[in-house]
Design a protein around this nucleic acid. Sequence first.
DNA 1: TATGAATGAGCCTTCATTCAT
DNA 2: AATGAATGAAGGCTCATTCAT
Lengths: 190, 190, 190, 190
Amino acid sequence: MRIKDEDKVNRIYGAAMKVINQEGFQGSSMTRIATEANLSPATIYLYFENKDDMIKKLFIHLKSRMGNSYFNSDADLSPSKGTFRTIWLNHYQYIMDNPEEYNFLENFSNCPLIGHIEKEHNQDYCPAFEALFEQAKSARLLQPLHNDIIYSLLFAPISQMVKKSKSEDRALTTNDLIQIFEASWKAVSQ
Amino acid sequence: MRIKDEDKVNRIYGAAMKVINQEGFQGSSMTRIATEANLSPATIYLYFENKDDMIKKLFIHLKSRMGNSYFNSDADLSPSKGTFRTIWLNHYQYIMDNPEEYNFLENFSNCPLIGHIEKEHNQDYCPAFEALFEQAKSARLLQPLHNDIIYSLLFAPISQMVKKSKSEDRALTTNDLIQIFEASWKAVSQ
Amino acid sequence: MRIKDEDKVNRIYGAAMKVINQEGFQGSSMTRIATEANLSPATIYLYFENKDDMIKKLFIHLKSRMGNSYFNSDADLSPSKGTFRTIWLNHYQYIMDNPEEYNFLENFSNCPLIGHIEKEHNQDYCPAFEALFEQAKSARLLQPLHNDIIYSLLFAPISQMVKKSKSEDRALTTNDLIQIFEASWKAVSQ
Amino acid sequence: MRIKDEDKVNRIYGAAMKVINQEGFQGSSMTRIATEANLSPATIYLYFENKDDMIKKLFIHLKSRMGNSYFNSDADLSPSKGTFRTIWLNHYQYIMDNPEEYNFLENFSNCPLIGHIEKEHNQDYCPAFEALFEQAKSARLLQPLHNDIIYSLLFAPISQMVKKSKSEDRALTTNDLIQIFEASWKAVSQ
DNA sequence: TATGAATGAGCCTTCATTCAT
DNA sequence: AATGAATGAAGGCTCATTCAT
């Protein structure tokens, strides 16, 4: 008998993401995805219960990848402006390098199918954040705001700018980046 | 499409939005939407070329409604922190009051179907903004940043917070609002 | 708009029965049945909820047709051997004339899908039988047996013989019929 | 297919029958049957050409089992009413004891798939019957009818009654049995 | 204009069967 | 011989769209 090829799951993930981003959720038929992954549609069902299951698991998979990407340089995590700038740039880099992934996450975190997954997996993908935020608040580096608020003030603007720049085919300059980070930092720092 | 049936178009818009938000995009069949609007599916095709066309026009319609809502109080538009706070709160209020509409816009502004519409209609929905931003920059109220950047710094965080609070069934307090606005304002003001 | 053609249901019934008898239950796809009925598969779903629903309703429809066939000559129903012979021959004639229908009923009255329908519809298709049997027992024409038993003794043998003769491509002679009826009558008569 | 694996064939038969009776013909996938038999689906294909082949052989296998059951008490086979009563009761007992098997045989003896098998195997499963019937006719115990007719008169009623009683969850009493046998006997005896 | 009936294409999923070990 | 992975074809059903009134 053949050996189950665990990497096949990743091929499916990749194909699904590609198709969904290219043709939209509507156009993403299982057959289309299977073709993209060089598989028979039936094979997908050896690895996932059904389409919903596949999408959900893909979502979780990507969410975790994105969470990890914030800290992908193994720098120290001492609470300093520099640390936050690094993380912030990592985030920016991730969006730029993985536009399909990010797009997918953005598109589907609000859809009903995904909705209730987030709650279960919300905390496990970036526990490191919580710690860092708390330390920075204790050190009076950050304002004493709820973590969610800090997170929004820090990352939402750059995320939106990247999306806008992509949709308008206009790249962000280094100067843009500096301006956005400095302004975002003003918002959250003490 | 003549004036007297403009109402029918609105009924279709309303039904489409309701169905899409209730059942998700997948469940939004033309027949289902027609039923919701008390129409025959065939009738929809008298007013729209096809489903894509309908969705696109619905999107533009809502985008414009949202753009107008920023200024729905007929206050003055002199460039002051108070004016921005009013606009900011109008935006917040709109999201809270029209969650279905906002949800729809958020969900679909990034999907391939919608993607290229925005460019054509990006400017027409808030020309007033441009003017206000320019004035405020001249008056050294706002930092000399690109309007898109100001827009992101000002509105992206609150938008994300509302989404998050909705998805977690946790309301934002008045205190949250004040904190978020003040921080956002710090980011953009001089 | 088009007028819903109620006769279409009968076309579907006919096509379904034909296909099922020709290719067996396994081979009876909705598409195959639709083709046989000169319809689109989707059209069937305008008249039936789903395949099961269609089969069930077909079963009930045929069951009732068969029930009526016992009495299709408007002869008197006085309890006499002649009456029973007439009914018995009507039954025989029905099987011979509608082999597909009878076959269908025989095949599926024991399948799980159908199983519980019978109970609901068992009595309504031959209330006349009950009355006749009771009268005949009172008149000491029939033995005082349970109606089900009389029914089985009277009709099961001929039904089985017809099936066997069909499957072996050997017709029943008039003499066969007389012998079978007379023997069956001996079984139930007093 | 060699002797030592004869057991595996029986495991397959058992599993197939169990699954078919439990889930109906529709639900009886090869994988499901293989699982029930603690085998790989591929293994079934070492013993049978394909699914049809398996079903047909299962049918023949069971038919022969049932044929033998008529004579499972090693009583004498002298042509007497007592002998026929014994055989008749054996038949009844078999149906009651092996409802799944009997159900399977009843359900599929008329389906197109099985149809033409019977002819080939009709005679080999109860050659003993032929002899007994002939002797009984010679001895003027039975009427001079065709064996098929005698067979139908004798066994069809009780078979139908058992099916009916099962489908209505109502057991046959000893009295019922006596009545049915005596009436059936009246039909065929001289 | 307006409609309900009708449909062909396509979707998700399953299944009998084969592959490769 | 035996198996679990893999698959192409097909099935039930839905849907955007058109027909015919």
